[in-house]
């Protein structure tokens, strides 16, 4: 690995910079650690602690996410990334601290949150059209058979078409679900999550099991959607590199603690060594991609940022 070049490459700065973020930065240049955000945050947590049974997953978490902001959530397996989402979705009560979603205590069934869980394999025999999945995102929660009133059906179709177009899935949206590839399913799942026009989008590992090209294009798509719809997006990922050009900030969960900040502030040797309490090194290649090394012991696995594991595939990007 060559040493990092002194000036960071130009594309390190995230291209889509939503106004909310810019305002926040102008008001207070963020330190690495928890930052008080003057912008009206849609998600706010202070002193948040979460536990499963007796085990504390993380504690003392302070962060806020502004409208239109794109935040990547990183961390080892079991560090509590999905758990954090479950708290925001109101499926899990915090053990301590305060958390607010749109100014309110998280509640199950919050229509303001679009959610894409980790994908399970789909039955390849399922012939239902992809648009049926998207429709559920709009009307799936209502009771009754939803019999066709003509105007309502037209309205439903229009909104479904809009969401499908927004994720660029028009060509295969009517195809049987069982025929779709991972990337295509992921886009339809995104369409399902945004069809109800939520203020917040929570994506759990949407890039997992996609090839590198699709990872980059889905990451771009999410950034475009976040900006165009002024949605706050939190996205759980294993590998930060496809996200580096597009995210505003990253949340890093490790050893029961949470750190939030800009990628170039958080993914540094100093911050990560501090967080993991171990000698961690972040290397950068000539294109600004970051590789975390020194986490190869069992206790703190490098979650795919490991240079040796990633280098061959990352070399193919762009």
């Amino acid at each position: 690995m060559p040493p990092p070049p002194p000036p960071p490459p130009p594309h390190m700065a995230p291209p889509p910079s939503p106004p909310a973020r810019t305002r926040a930065e102008a008001a207070a240049p963020e330190p690495t650690a928890p930052a008080p955000r003057p912008a009206p945050a849609v998600i706010e947590a202070s002193g948040l602690a979460v536990s499963y049974g007796n085990r504390t997953v993380f504690s003392g978490a302070d962060f806020g996410v502004a409208p239109g902001e794109f935040v990547a959530v990183l961390g080892s397996n079991g560090a509590g990334k999905t758990t954090l989402f479950r708290v925001l979705l109101g499926l899990l009560k915090p053990a301590a601290g305060r958390v607010a979603v749109l100014g309110q205590t998280p509640q199950r069934g919050n229509a303001a949150i679009g959610y894409v869980p980790q994908r399970r394999p789909v039955d390849p025999e399922l012939r239902l059209a992809g648009t049926e999945l998207v429709k559920l995102g709009l009307a799936g929660g209502r009771w009754g058979p939803g019999l066709p009133g003509r105007r309502r059906t037209a309205e439903l179709e229009r909104r479904v078409d809009d969401a499908v177009a927004a994720v660029g899935a028009e060509r295969y949206a009517e195809d049987p679900i069982g025929n779709l590839s991972g990337g295509e399913l992921q886009r339809l799942a995104l369409a399902q999550a945004i069809v109800s026009e939520p203020a917040i989008l929570l994506l759990d590992e949407p890039l997992a099991s996609l090839d590198v090209r699709n990872q980059v294009s889905v990451a771009h798509l999410v950034a475009v959607l976040a900006q165009a719809r002024d949605m706050a997006v939190m996205l759980i990922a294993h590998d930060v590199n496809p996200l580096l050009p597009v995210v505003d900030r990253v949340i890093y969960l490790a050893r029961g603690r949470l750190t939030i900040g800009r990628p170039e502030q958080v993914i540094t040797s100093e911050t990560l060594s501090n967080l993991y309490d171990a000698n961690v090194e972040v290397l950068r290649d000539s294109r600004g991609r970051r590789f975390v090394v020194g986490l190869d012991d069992e206790a703190a696995h490098p979650h795919g940022l490991d240079a040796r594991a990633r280098t061959p595939s990352v070399l193919d990007v762009r």
Binding site: L89, L91, Q107, R108, G109, N110, A111, I113, Y115, V116, P117, L128, E132, L133, L136, G137, A139, G140, G141, R142, W143, G144, P145, G146, Q192, A193
Partner: peptide, 21 residues
């Protein structure tokens, strides 16, 4: 009576749960 939520829960249980079904 249960048609839409049942369809949602059958096809996409995790999302349906998060949506309060």
């Amino acid at each position: 009576a249960l048609y839409r939520p049942l369809l949602f829960a059958s096809l996409d249980e995790d999302v349906a749960e998060a949506r309060g079904i």
